[in-house]
Design a binder for these strands. Structure first.
Length: 431
DNA sequence: TCTGGGGTCCTAGGACCC
DNA sequence: TCTGGGGTCCTAGGACCC
């Protein structure tokens, strides 16, 4: 039988902030999305105040005064660095690791003895070394490990509702069938990995409300009434591992850079600046992955939350040949922008998506009648990437990014220092 | 006044072509 | 009376995940 663990940082962004500001422990705390728009992480105390995931800040702002709610701007440099540290310690639990998101990883546990005790030790080590509280779920498939992780978290949150030994680390494999069924019976179907809002509602309408209800269905019915994907989920919940661990991340098929503006913009010049910046950054990501794009999609739209005329348009601009240099991508992007731009609207968001990516090895090369041009472009890009990485983002920029005041750039009012990721922000201990 | 960003996969409808 | 059918491309949007 296969065995998997899922380690997940509790309220990860909030926990990262608390490491460097211990006075935030036990306080209602949220981390806001870009532009301080809405809540993307909530401490337990903030959840207790009723703040929901994605809740707009202006709707919960009154809790600042009335209930002591604290909000911070997202600091992704800090969270990324804390994530690397957490993942490196987490990897010690298993024989293989898949980093699934910034705050979660799966581990393969083939041939690992005493997994439950080992998981507890790993959890304690992560907490002691980097200060991030985690929960660990263990099961015979990735879907079961996810479910076990949910139970471990919920048991920590509501000690009365579960046997105490399931809090923080929950190993479903150690339990009896009867115990597992009890847990499945008190767990909402929406907690299953792969069942979202829509399918969840459809199942509930059919009277299938808990994980237990779902696993008691017949797999043929699940496939017929829903899909093969859901049948796979059913099998995973029965301990039949269908989804493998992916140790090496697959190369991206698309690379996006999209942003909501700090303030709406109307003019083509500002939009051109934004699209130039976004394309440059997307192209950097593309080169880091050593891929080439065959097309670039550009979009702009107004805000549905504001009164006034609405306009949303996107266009996919094909490239003559797959490219990774900013020049080629930029001229296509700006051509696209000019095509879709319409004056007289308040635009709130724009973005570019690099599409149909291919890697170097499968790229079709043209007959080489003088590749000195493209070699020079490669060298130029390498030099720019190197300088920007060494001296900081934006050291070398494209002219159409503009040098004036950028009304479109995002606003973050409450950002904490990048304690671990920038030299000048490293905390100084005074003893 | 004020509603994120990055992915993957799928579907539907219209334009266009033969 | 009676107005085809198949294919592709593009755009838009939705569902799922974090």
């Amino acid at each position: 039988m296969k065995l998997f663990a899922l380690i997940d940082g509790n309220n990860f962004y909030c926990s990262c902030e608390r490491v460097f500001q211990p006075q935030l422990q036990n306080k209602p705390l949220i981390v806001l999305s870009n532009n301080d728009g809405c809540a993307i992480a909530r401490s337990e105390q903030a959840k207790a105040l009723g703040v929901k995931m994605g809740h707009p800040w202006f709707q919960v702002k009154h809790l600042e005064k009335s209930a002591g709610l604290i909000s911070l701007s997202a600091n992704f440099a800090l969270y990324g660095d804390m994530s690397n540290r957490m993942m490196s310690l987490a990897s010690e639990l298993g024989d293989s690791q898949e980093i699934y998101s910034i705050d979660e990883c799966f581990l393969g546990l083939q041939g690992i003895p005493d997994v439950t005790q080992r998981a507890k030790d790993t959890r304690a080590k992560i907490l002691q070394w980097i200060g991030i509280p985690t929960c660990i779920g263990i099961g015979a498939s990735k879907t079961l490990a996810k479910l076990a992780n949910h139970i471990a978290k919920d048991a920590e949150r509501k000690p009365g509702s579960y046997p105490p030994r399931l809090a923080q680390v929950c190993n479903l494999v150690e339990l009896t069938e009867r115990q597992r069924m009890y847990l499945f019976g008190i767990t909402d179907i929406g907690e299953i990995w792969g069942i979202g809002r829509r399918i969840g509602q459809q199942l509930k309408d059919a009277g299938i409300k808990t994980v237990k209800d779902f696993v008691e269905l017949d797999p043929g019915t699940v496939r017929k009434r829903f899909s093969v994907t859901l049948e796979r989920t059913w099998r995973e919940l029965h301990g039949q591992s269908c989804i493998d661990l992916e140790e090496i991340p697959a190369p991206k098929k698309e690379i996006a850079y999209t942003r909501t503006f700090g303030q709406p913009v109307r003019d083509l010049v500002s939009l051109t600046e934004a699209v130039t910046e976004f394309t440059s950054r997307a192209a950097e990501k593309l080169r880091r992955q050593q891929s080439f794009a065959s097309a670039i999609l550009v979009f702009i739209h107004t805000s549905k939350h504001r009164a006034g005329p609405q306009y949303a348009r996107s266009i996919t601009v094909p490239l003559v040949r797959p490219a990774s240099d900013t020049n080629s991508l930029l001229s296509a992007a700006i051509r696209g922008l000019r095509t879709i731009y319409k004056p007289g609207y308040d635009f709130i968001k724009a973005g570019v998506i690099l599409m149909d990516l291919s890697t170097t090895t499968v790229q079709q090369i043209e007959l080489d009648f003088g590749s000195s041009m493209s070699n020079k472009a490669d060298q130029l890009m390498q030099a720019i990437d190197q300088i920007n990485s060494q001296f900081g983002r934006g050291t070398i920029i494209y002219g159409s990014t503009g040098t004036g005041k950028k009304t479109w750039s995002m606003s973050q009012q409450r950002k904490t220092p990048s304690y671990t990721a920038k030299i000048r922000d490293i905390p100084i201990a005074v003893g």
